[in-house]
Design a protein around this nucleic acid. Sequence first.
DNA 1: ATGAAAGCGCTAACAC
DNA 2: GTGTTAGCGCTTTCAT
Lengths: 361, 361
Amino acid sequence: MGRGVTLRDVADRAGVSSRTVSNVVNGYAPVAEATRARVQQAVDELGYRPNVLARNLAAGRSGQIAVVVPYLDTPYFSELLQGIIRAARIQGYNVLIDQTDGDAEHEKLFLSRGSERLLFDGVIFSPLGLAQADLAGRDPSLPLVVLGERVSDGGFDHIGIEDVTASREATEHLIGLGRRRIAAIGDQPYRTGEAAQLRTRGFRLAHERAGLPVHEELIVSTPRFNRSDGAAAMAHLLDLAEPPDAVFCYSDLVALGALRTLASRGLRVPEDVAVVGYDDIEDGRYANPSVTTISPDKKLIAETAVERLLNRITSSTPVPGQEIRAPHRLIVRESTVGREAGQAGQAAREVPRQPAEEGRH
Amino acid sequence: MGRGVTLRDVADRAGVSSRTVSNVVNGYAPVAEATRARVQQAVDELGYRPNVLARNLAAGRSGQIAVVVPYLDTPYFSELLQGIIRAARIQGYNVLIDQTDGDAEHEKLFLSRGSERLLFDGVIFSPLGLAQADLAGRDPSLPLVVLGERVSDGGFDHIGIEDVTASREATEHLIGLGRRRIAAIGDQPYRTGEAAQLRTRGFRLAHERAGLPVHEELIVSTPRFNRSDGAAAMAHLLDLAEPPDAVFCYSDLVALGALRTLASRGLRVPEDVAVVGYDDIEDGRYANPSVTTISPDKKLIAETAVERLLNRITSSTPVPGQEIRAPHRLIVRESTVGREAGQAGQAAREVPRQPAEEGRH
DNA sequence: ATGAAAGCGCTAACAC
DNA sequence: GTGTTAGCGCTTTCAT
């Protein structure tokens, strides 16, 4: 049953050469209708299945792309991954997953090793531990698309949203609500925390434009962007002499953690503290209260990443690196404006609604 | 830089045959120390990297396993996947991901095609659309481990938890709390809804043992196990003349959706309605209220799945299919017992605690 | 302990 | 249009 039936077997059976069988199977060169039928019949009878490995070896390509993310169980990445897999499959590519746990060494290894040469034809990479500078040490022959906040050096494509703008908008939303002691959770002042730093910049910029002072003690750093970090940071903020009346969280996960702490302390959201997140993961839409957030166009990011990468892979001439900006929106939900009157008691099949949506960019 | 340096190049450089280089690189046969050093030096100088494809073709294995799940963005699967990738990597295997969207045809295709012969050496498969019977039509030569609620037919290994027992325990927990109108969300009475049916059986069993009647109108079916299904089902239940005072949800996602509806309706959890979930995903631990749940040992499931699969792959003799039961626990959290006194106002870095934990099985 | 050589199964020049 | 054939880069008997 398909075990070990080779192209040659089919060729013998059909009384043609392996070349012709190859052509029939791949639809490459034109083949006479009579021959094609004969070959096809032999293929069916023998249950022939091409050996992908051999094909790839001969063709010098693997038909696989690798996706490297820090954490797989982070909703943002799994949602992105889902889009990437769908897009890749349409183009006939398989997707190999690697998870780095944010470890810089692991990430570096992945880029430097053409090691797995031919195991994958290109990489979609979402660095975390890696600093911009580390990207320089990569294998230049490896087609690469980077997601997140690194900047293209010309040798790869980079896709991201306008972090500074988005963060400014998020903060302005809070300011517009009349909040004046606004905290920020997620800053990462060290070398590789570039995403975080952009968000902090936007946070400051919003204050600046509004002529408001930034309360430095309300900017708290976290090692990661996850729930427990958010919960701990929120606890810290609430223990301050003058706690914040609003929080801009650098991820929805952080926001969810913060909400958890607020609930434990018996504080009301948004009355006592308004909360904004970042990423628009599904958890945030169903959280209680639902989370106001910056929503990057993940589907577009995924599709563009695949498209650019395949373009790089198949192009015979070097492709100049592009900086690509994906659009984002601020989605306003309960964690900043509260539950709208009448939202309780809806029709049976109705899903929690997003009270308002404001398109930007 | 690594482009096209072959074994033969290294051999020439070191003045040995390619056989010897192969031995050195793979550490197979014993090699004289002097030769090994010379070869190693040539390898380093030339920046030689083995071509995985060629190696695999020659060796007749791909060094890859495929993992097939219905949805990637479902936390339960992404958490599982994370464990699988880690375990596989330790054994030197790469992981190829496929997402079926629960489509039975897609799932069937995957099993029947030795199509991608040699693209992966085996499959870890979490079927959803596929019924037990469909598993029979698979390529018998493909090493297979099935996760979830199908039963091994002897040709593959199956890993799952005791669904009936777990569901009974979850329901008994609710009964023990004095609830008498207990609903169940997630039943799937059709052919392929086997996981759901087991849970419904456990649900009934608990009632039976307690000498309590099952309120049939409180068992509601859902197409999937996700948040929106849970939210809609809960809305339906609340619109009944006699709404439930407790709900057993067949996944944490369903529970999260239900919680969302309850909050929108202004109902208190657990005072008005107690909620139990299934899967123990991270969202549930940080939800507000945190979700009491059945916690399968995901790490063990992932590791066992990889171990069994690799065993199948490397074994020269046929391995009889095994039925493997992974342990589970009922983890009691706020959604059934409420917030413990004094939980509000804890130390800064403290993460929301699980009020109580009860080991079972 | 090491070398020579035959494939693994397919693709793609190169001929006819 | 179709056959011939030389690899793709590595593993692996079989000698030595």
